[in-house]
Amino acid sequence: MNLALILFASIITSNIALTYFLGMCPFVSISKNIRVASGMGIAVTIVMTVTASANWLILNKVLIPMGLQYLQFLVFIITIATLVQIIEIFLDRFSPALYHAFGIFLPLITVNCAILGVSLFAMLRVYTFWQTVAFAFGSGIGWFLAIIAIGGLRKKLMFADPPENFGAAGITAILAGIMALAFIGFTGIASL
């Protein structure tokens, strides 16, 4: 599939948060604050691109030639945990300001299902290396876009009066649903 098409589809029509529901926990819990949400969004985009490419290389150059595909989940999660640590060490060494800005988010990303999910989707759809990179980068941007948008919508909620029983999580789900409808409206242009 065309790289530009994959990039567009993964950002808008097949958005990782709104159509595959990945990375929902931070989506509900930290989207109250746009500044925090954008920090998380940038971190997710970087880590997603790096780990999906690394996992593609490991799967296709190491595991498949050796016939060890059944270990893929274990290897994927170890790769992600290791790479997150390495990125953390590099950031601490070369850009302490950025490192402190990310704070707790980098270690938390290890257990973010969106990161593992992108590696798994790339594997299930048998993408080539550059398709994987485009898909992972697009998904990261798409997640970033979705969490910023929901953060903005939740800010407006301060002036609204939804039923009390919804709670924070319920009303966020309804907002996300309305947003997902808007994103799905583009499906005719391109979808994965």
Binding site: L18, T19, Y20, F21, P163, N165, F166, G167, A169, G170, I171, T172, A173, I174, A176, G177, I178, A180, L181, I184
Partner: peptide, 17 residues
Amino acid sequence: IPPGAFFALGTFILIIN
């Protein structure tokens, strides 16, 4: 479809609460 999942979850939380 996916948006329906969000609506169903939101409504479920509303009723349970």
